[in-house]
């Protein structure tokens, strides 16, 4: 029942936000601020994890393919497609949930608990316009950059592994040629589309959880935990359905 209420509230927020879109040009300062916060918070961790994710993928796949003569030449395409269609958007979404989604819920939750949101309402100022819209727009704007950054670093991680591990016997040019051969613009677009859907869901869930927080510091903590759980479930479920539609 609570889950249903949450999703009804999320769709209400989305609808409210669509109505407030005409005020977007006046909120560009706040949107830019959110972009900076999201980029600053997420970029380093996305970079580090993506390099390792690409490396692990190359390591595992390279080991399995070493038993099939000549199959390692497909390593570039496997790492390339996995990173841009699946792992790049998914991992960035999880990191955005952990770093940004939790911060949004904590901040808006604290504002709700300490009556700052009520203060906005009494001033005839829409909390959706001032608090939710900049965060959603910031997420939608930054997510493609973060995803591309993650994908490229994942590819680099895979390349580093192919050059430094003994049982992978392909050189760099074969890795990149294979990657270029299979990774087309459609694959990159599919990954970016997923990333945008994830960004919308994460920012809306975290804003909704924050605005619905009542009580005190303990409830703020509970809301943050719920944000993480709900966002991750929603991301994985959406990932399955979007992938099915795109394939």
């Amino acid at each position: 029942m609570k889950l249903l209420q949450l999703w009804v509230f999320i769709f209400q927020l989305l609808w409210e936000m669509c109505k407030e879109l005409r005020y977007l040009p006046r909120q560009m300062g706040r949107c830019f601020e959110q972009c900076c916060i999201m980029g600053y918070q997420t970029l380093p961790i996305v970079g580090i994890l993506s390099v390792f994710m690409g490396g692990i993928l190359a390591l595992q796949t390279g080991y399995s393919l070493s038993k099939l003569p000549g199959a390692q030449s497909f390593l570039g395409s496997i790492v390339g497609l996995s990173m841009c269609r699946e792992l790049g958007p998914l991992m960035t979404a999880f990191l955005l949930t952990g770093r940004v989604g939790s911060a949004i819920t904590a901040e808006l939750g604290s504002m709700s608990v300490y009556k700052e949101v009520d203060a906005l309402r009494t001033m005839n100022l829409s909390p959706v316009r001032l608090l939710v819209m900049p965060r959603v727009v910031g997420g939608l704007f930054m997510m493609p950059f973060l995803t591309i950054f993650s994908t490229v670093l994942g590819w680099l991680g895979g390349w580093i592994v192919t050059q430094s591990v003994d049982f992978i016997s392909i050189n760099g040019s074969i890795y990149w040629r294979s990657l270029k051969q299979y990774v087309d613009i459609e694959s990159i677009n599919d990954g970016l589309l997923k990333a945008e859907i994830f960004a919308l869901v994460i920012t809306l869930i975290s804003s909704a959880m924050g605005l619905q927080t009542k009580g005190g510091p303990r409830e703020i903590g509970t809301s943050v935990t719920h944000t993480l759980v709900q966002s991750m479930i929603a991301i994985l479920m959406l990932d399955y359905f979007v992938t099915k539609v795109l394939l």
Partner: peptide, 29 residues
């Protein structure tokens, strides 16, 4: 009609300076 509510705790916006707190209504409207 405009209604001004002064909350028990003040409910000032903690992420803004005092000046921005006071200017918010005038700026946004």
């Amino acid at each position: 009609y405009v209604m001004g509510l002064v909350f028990q705790s003040g409910a000032l916006f903690n992420s803004m300076t005092i000046f921005d707190n006071l200017a918010l209504y005038l700026r946004e409207h």
